[in-house]
Design a protein around this nucleic acid. Sequence first.
DNA 1: ATTAATGCAAACGGTTTGCACTACT
DNA 2: AGTAGTGCAAACCGTTTGCATTAAT
Lengths: 149, 149
Amino acid sequence: MGYPRRVVATRDPWLSAAEQMRARGMRWTPQRRLVIDVLARSSGHVAASDVIEQCRRADPLTTPSTVYRTLDALETLGLIQHGHAADGHEEYHVLPQSEHGHRYCTNCGGSWEIDAKEAAELTRSMRDRQGFEVDLSHLTIVGRCAECA
Amino acid sequence: MGYPRRVVATRDPWLSAAEQMRARGMRWTPQRRLVIDVLARSSGHVAASDVIEQCRRADPLTTPSTVYRTLDALETLGLIQHGHAADGHEEYHVLPQSEHGHRYCTNCGGSWEIDAKEAAELTRSMRDRQGFEVDLSHLTIVGRCAECA
DNA sequence: ATTAATGCAAACGGTTTGCACTACT
DNA sequence: AGTAGTGCAAACCGTTTGCATTAAT
């Protein structure tokens, strides 16, 4: 209706990825662009194998080592963060601008993010009762989601 | 090798391990005894590599494949339960008589069990707010313990 | 012209498997 | 005697690395 809606200047970290890289003397290559495209379209967390597969769809010549190295590079830029999925494999969490954990359903394989607010009770009770500071970005809760339970 | 699944753990599971095995037509071997010795002395959760190393200390001829197969067998007996540590490697939880999760300190490497009581707030809030049934045995919380924080 | 990044192939480390042999029952 | 379990070596799979080549700066 009428004019385009006013949008808060949401600086897109992916758009600036190229500059961030150049600023550090890193190079902006087609392969890196592709990996970043895939990440940008992702749901927030992807297995390394997913990234490789998706890249290969766009460019069948994609090489695993290049993908891994790009993911490494992006992690040093702070754009992603790696961890391990329930099955023990590498998993990359995209854009941890706000630190968060994950919730997985063992039945349907679905996954959701757990933000600080949602984890508040947990972090508080751990701090109060055990003096334990929870690292939210490593929090993983496994179980059955509402639909599957 | 498919054994019948699922057995209730008894009061002193290690003493009865031999009988439980024989009852299923499994055999009681020195190698298995050794693995079980190691598990019995363990703190409640061990990495596969720990088990192998400890076994090798007692018997340098210990073979990884045998250890893995024994751990498999013990899991089908319900005496242990496997999962994945923070670094993504196999980890075995001994005697999950009472279901529990784990808490790890990234600084000192210490680990503690989280029992149902301690996790009560978490499980309740997940159930109430997301309809999510937490699987306590897969709960892993990472952070800094009271001493290290 | 530099030198970072790529692509390949080979190395890696933890886990699994096939198979002939051993030894528990 | 019969067969589950062992030990070895080789396969596996996801990830990492060395190195000569390519290409972004």
